[in-house]
Each structure stands twice: as C-alpha cells, then as structure tokens.
Amino acid sequence: MTFMTVKTLRPLVCGVGLALVLVACGSDKSALELTEITKRLGQRAMNDKAAVAASQQAVLQVSRADVEAAGVPLLRVRIEGTGAMSTLAEVDRQGAYSTYMTGDGIALLFRGGVLVGTRGLGVDLMGLSSPGLAAAIKAGKSTRAYRYLDGDEQLATVEMSCLVTSSAHGPVTILDRSYGVTQVKEWCQGEALDGKKLAFENFYWVESGSGKVRQSRQFISEKFGRAEIEVLNHR
C-alpha cells in the first residue's frame, strides 16, 4: 500500500498549488496541516478506483491456510454500496459482543452474528437496538432502531419494522468449507431520516446445530447499503 501511495502522488506534485504547500516545514503540526490534507486528498483522488479492484483481488487471495495461520477470528466483508472488500480481525470480545477491524482501522461491531455498529466508514451506524436473532425468529417480527450521527453531531434514530422468516437453504461454502444452514430473512420497512420510505432485506445463514451465523447480508446505511459478511474461521 505504501508504494502505491508514493507512486500515485508523484504526478500530482507538479500542480502549482501543491508545489506551494509542499514547501512548508517546521515543528508546529497545526501550521503544516494544510500540506498534509492536500496530500491526502491527492491520494484519495488517485487511489479510489484502482483501490476497489486491488482490494477485491487481494482479499479473494486469502486462503484457508492464511486464516489458520492468523490465529484470531477473521471475517471477510464486502460493502454492497462501494464494492470494497476487506478482511477483518477480531480485536475485542465481551460476552456476545465483538469488534472486528481492518488493517487501517475500520471497525464492525457485532452482537452475536448481528451487525450493530460500524466505525470509520464515513456514515457510521453508531448503534443498533434490536432483539436477538433467535427471539426475532420466534416472534416472526422485530423492531430495529438504527442510530446515526447527523450533520450537527446529534444521534438520530431510524426505526424499522421487520418481518422475520426462516426457511431451508442449500449449504454455503466459505473458503472450501461447506456448512449446512437455515436461511433467516428479515424484511424491514420504515422511514429514513429525510422522511423518505426505506426498505431492505437482511439475510442470515445460520449453521444447523451450532446456531452460528456463518454468512450474512446486513444493512448498514443508505449510503453503503448492506455488508456481505463471511465468517472465515471454521471454529
């Protein structure tokens, strides 16, 4: 990643504005920040498209052997809205709760197999109030409150009413391993923060016997759509 940054930044340096800010130097970090920001913006602009392709390529090359060697629980996640993919490692576990993080500090928060938060995406899901998966299946319906930061730093809540059904499903295969699963579908309707109608479907593929969510597709935000999540570890 580092070499990519350097390479893509080079053509930008000829820009007059950049050339001007790049001459800044000193020990006072706040005075130098404009230089840093201009560099980052340049990186973003140059990297974005190539980065999607590179991320997909790289993530898909992770093998079962890599997963075993890593020694910590890993997820593979694809964001529907952008196509970006990443591998995430577990960095925290407290009872049913857990946090997984990418190498560059984007975190996904879970309760059981249910995605209850994101950090560092840009339009983060700050929290999710929902019944557990088992309770929702039993009731056949659920109410879910999605919480986001608005532009004025206030937490706003999007309430969704969902119908929950479970049905038989063929096995799912993750990194050469096959799991017998039940498909749980959660069909949610509600009103987005701007008052427009919002609807989406979450899917959970729950391993028969262990009750573990092996694979899922869960809503994050309108901007990012759903996260496609695969649990890479066997155990």
């Binding site: 980065a51 991320s55 992770v62 990443s86 984007i106």
Partner: peptide, 21 residues
C-alpha cells in the same frame, strides 16, 4: 506470525476507502 497477520489484514484497503464522497 505478526507479519503474516499484517499481510492478511492489509490485503483489503479500508472498507470505505473507495466510496465517492
């Protein structure tokens, strides 16, 4: 082991890295 771990994690760029803002 740490290197291998880093490799696995760095393979994916940030999940949001790519969305146009």
């Amino acid at each position: 082991a740490i290197m291998r771990m880093t490799n696995v994690l760095c393979l994916g760029v940030g999940l949001s890295g790519v969305v146009a803002f």
